[in-house]
Structures are given as structure tokens and as C-alpha cells.
Design a protein around this nucleic acid. Structure first.
Lengths: 149, 149
DNA sequence: CTTCAATCATTGACTTTCTCAACTATTTGG
DNA sequence: CCAAATAGTTGAGAAAGTCAATGATTGAAG
């Protein structure tokens, strides 16, 4: 027997995209974090490792802007990853204030494994959507996530 | 002059729906919370007031389930709203363990005003989307937010 | 009818995440 | 060269999330 599957779904709130965004984000991150737990990663720390492991060589400021995090949170995330030998802080020749974050070989190795888990998490989280719908969703979310100034 | 508008957009991460969900949710909630600040509300507390003000008479357990919050968080939210005379805890005749949350007249009044702000916030957050796209997004998000078991 | 397990709301403790202000080193523009 | 802005860091405090325990009540089983 299935759940009552909420009568509250009939409320206006249930049709509010901002609310849906919050709830969808909550459920997906729970699923993904569970999968990442064995690696001692969360979606947050993985995001950093991800960008560091793909040759972008982001500065911390870029990470902070792109991930929507306070610079101090980025510091903490990188401290952790660096302490575990997964990323390095490299000097930026063009600006000595700035640090460029690069994954170590160990970091790239872990990234690979973590990514397969994350993909699996995505498959369960977005199981109700067809491939086309996922693409559509991705496109729409991109506009919302990066639309404003 | 516009922003660099991130080279990191080229990363795989930028195409990951879970990441986009997180970022979209972050930006929309910042916008909405800013609009709600004059009412001393946040999207969280408004959600409760919203459901309480529309005749659903949700129990706290229902709120907790539907909003995806721990029951203790719901207690705190309602304590606050009740302390400000915006909602009441009513006994549930069918189950005396449970409390039914109902907005007071003052609560409904405030809700009205807050809702127009929230709609305005939505208009700025989703400005990049057509009406059709918003509907599509809402539909897709509903599946994700309420899909799994 | 009684007992036992489950459920609802609550409390309290604790961790994580968020937000902000201050500070140092460095860069940029005048 | 100087002043203002920027990158990263630190630290503090607020908000949010997690978890276990408790009292009251319910429902199911015997």
C-alpha cells in the first residue's frame, strides 16, 4: 500500500516553484550525500573537487562565486580536502593574492569513483523523468540559477 | 558592463541537475527572504503560515512531512508564529495527541500581504522564463520533489 | 478490558551551514 | 607613490539540520 501522498499537494504552496525548488533540492541532496558518505564527501565538497579535477584551475573566489558560497566556507572546504591530500593550493602567477585549486592524482582518483555514485544518485532522484525531461529541467534550471546579474 | 559570467559554466558540474537545483534554490530563497524581511518572515515561516491560512488545518506532523522538516523545527516555527498571534494550535478531536495549525485573522491578513511580495520575488527570480516554461518547470519539479517513496 | 507497540508533539543537545565583520597581503588606477 | 579595491583567512554568532529521549495518547492483539 502506498503513502497517503499528501492532501497538502492541493495547496497553492505545492504549486510554488520556489517551494518545489527547495524541496527537490532537499531530497536530491539527501540521496547524493548518502551515496557520497563512504568517501567522506558531501555534494558540497565534491563540487569543489569536481571543479578542481577538471583542469579549470579555479581560484577560491571563482569557486565561491560559482558555488554561491561565502569565501570563508570555501576556505573550510579546501582546508579539508587539502588536509586529505585531494587538492592543492597553487600560487597564481598573475595575482599573488589568489590561489588556484587543483586536484592531486589521489583527488582525481577519488573524484572518478565519487562521480559514478553521484550519477547513480541522480538516476534515483530523477527516476520519474524521461531523458528529455531531464534535459529540459537542466536548461530551465540553468536560466534560474545563472539568470540574474 | 556585464559580469565575466563564469567560464566555469563550461564544467560538467554546471550541467548537473542536482547542482543547479541547489544553486537555483539558493538564489530564489535569497530574493524571497529579502522581500519577506519587512514582515519578519522567511520562506520557511511563510510556508507554515500559508498552509495554516488556507483551510487545510494541517497537523504538525503533516507540516513536517510536507515541508521536509524535522518535527522539532516545525515546533520552533509554530512557536514563533503563535507567539506573534499569527497562528493557533487547535486540538484535533480525532486524535488528542495532534495539534491542528490554523491562521488567526491577523495571520491571514499578513499572509495576504506576504503573498504579493512572494509573487513579486518569483517574478524576478523566474524572469528569464516564459509562462509556459514556468509551468513546465513546476511540473518537472513536482515529480522530483514528490516522486520517490 | 488490558497491555504493548507505535505515533504526535516537545525538549534538549549537538553538528553543520550561513552570514558578517575584521585583518593581511597584494593589486589596480589615478 | 597613494588610495581604494580585491583575494584569502580568521573568528564569532545566528540559523538550520540531526538525533535521541520523554509524556501523552492511540490502536492493535490478546
Amino acid at each position: 500500500m502506498t503513502e497517503p501522498l499528501h492532501r497538502l499537494l492541493g495547496s497553492d504552496l505545492a504549486a510554488d516553484p520556489a517551494f518545489l525548488l527547495a524541496r527537490a533540492r532537499a531530497v536530491t541532496s539527501v540521496v547524493a550525500n548518502a551515496r557520497l558518505a563512504p568517501f567522506q564527501l558531501k555534494v558540497r565538497s565534491l563540487s569543489v573537487l569536481w571543479l578542481a579535477g577538471q583542469g579549470f584551475g579555479p581560484s577560491q573566489r571563482e569557486l565561491s562565486e560559482f558555488l554561491g558560497l561565502d569565501p570563508s566556507q570555501v576556505v573550510a572546504l579546501i582546508d579539508d580536502l587539502q588536509g586529505r591530500g585531494l587538492v592543492e593550493r597553487r600560487p597564481d602567477d598573475r595575482d599573488r593574492r589568489s590561489r588556484i585549486i587543483v586536484a592531486t592524482p589521489a583527488g582525481r582518483e577519488l573524484l572518478e569513483q565519487a562521480l559514478t555514485e553521484v550519477r547513480a544518485a541522480g538516476d534515483t532522484s530523477f527516476a520519474g523523468l524521461t531523458d528529455d525531461e531531464r534535459k529540459t529541467l537542466t536548461g530551465l534550471l540553468t536560466k534560474v540559477a545563472f539568470g540574474g546579474r
